[in-house]
């Protein structure tokens, strides 16, 4: 039909078009949210609570809630995830048990976040009696990001050259000390990157907290981990779909979306920068 050279040109044009569309999506989304949200952001918006039945005022309690969730879920998921990754990468030998653990991690990674929400509701809120609370939601989010942290840490440790472990073991150093003194320091930047990425994930997840303790509106900031909380993503959802005056509060919605986007993308940016920086410094 066409000469090979011509069909190549046509095909490459289509491939270029495809990537152009994808990149256009990215910029369109960022552009819309930024250009519409920037006007809403002010010191008051960031430091005040919602006012007048959430048609005015700021998003401070939602920011606080999100920060609490990040701290709570990371406090649980980071140690668990890193220890599990150490086992899988440094101790485990191929075998049935390891295979089962790896499959479990893969499946946790693929489980929809709303299913985690259901589980959190049944297990933490009801069965363990934590109620709708920061605690229940943090634990639920910890499960959501656990596979992310394990995978990232494993990947980071896999970049440590095997020769260094051998060298350390050959000096009569135990495996655990080798992990602590050689493997972890070298893998640290990669592990930090993974941890930061999962912070972004926690900040943005909505479905799990919707079922485990996020509140529509709270007059006070939470003071205990057994309190309910407001959170940025849920706040945006509420304002955009069931607020008092949805059309009139669009600027607040855009502003909230922008703050959320900035947190998540800022966190991703930092992670990418750390990865870049240390990739350059690696010398083997």
């Amino acid at each position: 039909m066409f000469s090979p050279k011509t069909s190549e040109r046509i095909a490459f044009a289509f491939l270029t078009l495809a990537i152009a569309i994808v990149v256009a999506f990215v910029f369109t989304i960022i552009f819309y949210i930024t250009s519409n949200g920037i006007g809403a952001i002010s010191t008051d918006f960031l430091t005040q609570g919602p006012k007048n039945r959430m048609t005015e005022g700021g998003i401070f309690p939602a920011i606080v809630g999100t920060v609490f969730l990040i701290i709570g879920s990371m406090a649980v998921a980071l140690p668990l995830g890193i220890l599990a990754a150490i086992y899988l990468n440094e101790y485990a030998e191929e075998g049935r048990i390891v295979w089962i653990i790896q499959m479990a991690i893969n499946n946790l990674a693929g489980t929809p976040s709303v299913v985690f929400g259901l589980f959190g509701l049944a297990m933490f809120v009801k069965y363990m009696g934590f109620g709708a609370s920061i605690l229940a939601a943090s634990l639920t989010l910890a499960l959501v990001v656990l596979p992310v942290i394990i995978r990232a840490s494993e990947e980071a440790m896999a970049t440590v050259p095997p020769g260094l472990r051998e060298a350390s073991l050959a000096l009569g150093v135990t495996r655990w000390q080798t992990v602590r003194k050689i493997v972890l320091p070298i893998a640290l930047p990669g592990m930090v990157t993974g941890a930061i990425l999962s912070v972004g994930r926690v900040a943005g997840e909505t479905a799990p907290i919707l079922l485990t303790g996020a509140a529509y509106f709270l007059p006070r900031l939470p003071t205990a981990i057994s309190d309910q909380f407001m959170a940025l993503p849920y706040h945006l959802f509420v304002l955009a779909t069931s607020g008092t005056n949805i059309a009139a509060t669009r600027p607040i919605q855009y502003g909230t979306a922008l703050v959320l986007l900035l947190i998540v993308l800022g966190v991703n940016f930092v992670a990418v920068m750390i990865r870049r920086h240390y990739k350059k410094k690696m010398r083997w």
């Binding site: 051998e166 060298a167 350390s168 050959a170 000096l171 009569g172 150093v173 050689i182 010398r283």
Partner: peptide, 27 residues
Amino acid sequence: VELRKRVGMVFQKPNPFPMSIYENIAY
């Protein structure tokens, strides 16, 4: 672990730790 303190090993490819010269020896 005790055995390997008594019997040291040097490998084919030089494999210093990514630390200072001093730290490598003091390790």
